[in-house]
Design a protein around this nucleic acid. Structure first.
Lengths: 244, 244
DNA sequence: GAGTGGTCTAGACCACAGT
DNA sequence: CTGTGGTCTAGACCACTCT
């Protein structure tokens, strides 16, 4: 049983009701004062739940009117926010397979690949894992993960075959905090062509990311290489106040 | 003179001091109680500013310790959040040129292109604008904008040559709210090759977006086509609580 | 124990929409 | 004028870190 706070409970409840179309697209959620009565909370607590819904693209708050339910497309294969591959596949009801084709618990971090993400580490010992993601019997994605041994000394091969995030969070009790990721387009290399059965001249969408714990220790470096024709990235963004 | 609220003022001040390295990477901001004294605000107001800094990747809050300044890479050419091309070019001190090569105030929205973003409009009258972005004397990006006439009846060609966002916000007083965008990789078409001088077989990074006002009216549809070798997208994301 | 952030409250005042 | 969201306050209690 997961213990969370009131505003998160309200958030979850409203989110589920939006997904279930109890609150339909184009209609308004109960007003902030009504939420206070409905859930027995103070107004600021309800506002926090609404703010998170707005941040995640579920609603648009309109002053004088209410919280309008808007078109929402958060989870979209294959990348969006920090969600594990396994979580995504479950949420989207996609049948996938996960093949570990490389495992080296005594490797070194290839720093050059992550230089543009602000990594300034030197030769760090890592556990290196290579996996192919198979979707509808077709290999589409290569994931190369490097996990710092200074933070996580041991990553069993079994964890790579199941889910690294489940291992970090459920087994080790670590809290994933945030990630910086970078998407570029690059020609397929020999390894891409071999693992994904691609023709020469093929292009790849490459997502490199650095993931940190809630105590700000970077611990996981990932290079995720996607077949160009299967790649799709969705993003929801709000307008910041204008720069000065 | 722009009138904003206290938490936004504190946010701006802290952000600028982080950028100016008054608060350096790896150090802690003043504690929440200290911020109260420093700015003469209540704790919740300061917390709001800190929450926004955390959201935007400036800091990581660590319970019992403080607000740690972390590696930050928010603005990165050419897409990230909702920032206008002109704002980005200014922020990054990049010399760019903006060539309008198509302008049709009596066009129709090509709905098929935006179907995957959840657009279910029918033949809507739009102002259609085609622009090429030239960076370092090299044409890199094609932007095709379609602006609904039902929301903005008239978009002068001059606005397209300068900045559409400046026109919408400063001239018309509209408030941009949010956008949904989708990144895919597609082969270059004849128009791409002609405008950007590409070889046959070239690939493009295509960013399609739907932008809405703060009252949730979608009004702008954009297809932004980037040379594959110049494309780079950076994203900062926080881990959500685990799905149930 | 002292200091940090995390959460929640009850109340206040303001700006905006719709009648 | 009423109801909506936007902002701010002063105080409370809790969980965690560090000494």
């Amino acid at each position: 049983m997961v213990m969370i706070n009131k505003s998160a409970l309200v958030y979850d409840d409203l989110m589920q009701k939006i997904d279930a179309e109890v609150y339909q697209l184009g209609t308004y959620l109960p007003s902030e004062n009504q939420l206070c009565d409905l859930y027995g909370i103070s107004r600021e607590t309800g506002r926090k739940a609404l703010a998170t819904l707005a941040e995640n693209g579920y609603i648009q708050k309109i002053r004088g009117k209410g919280s309008l339910v808007i078109e929402h497309r958060q989870y979209e294969f294959p990348v969006s926010g920090i969600v594990s591959y396994k979580e995504l596949a479950q949420k989207l009801h996609i049948a996938t397979e996960n093949v570990v084709y490389g495992y080296d618990p005594e490797a070194t971090l290839p720093i050059a690949a992550f230089a543009s993400l602000g990594v300034d580490l030197t030769e760090e010992p890592v556990t290196a894992i290579k996996r192919v993601r198979v979707i509808d019997d077709e290999p589409d994605i290569i994931d190369k993960d490097y996990i710092l041994k200074s933070v996580i000394p041991d990553v069993p091969r079994k964890a790579a075959e199941d889910s690294l995030y489940a291992y970090f969070e459920d087994e080790l009790g670590l809290e994933i905090g945030y990630a910086t990721k970078e998407i570029t387009m690059e020609p397929a290399n020999a390894e891409d062509r071999a693992e994904l059965n691609l023709d020469p001249g093929a292009y790849m969408a490459v997502v490199r990311s650095v993931t940190s714990l809630t105590d700000a220790r970077a611990f996981q470096f990932t290079e995720s290489r996607h077949r160009a024709d299967k790649f799709r990235f969705r993003d929801f963004a709000r307008r910041q106040r204008k720069p000065m």
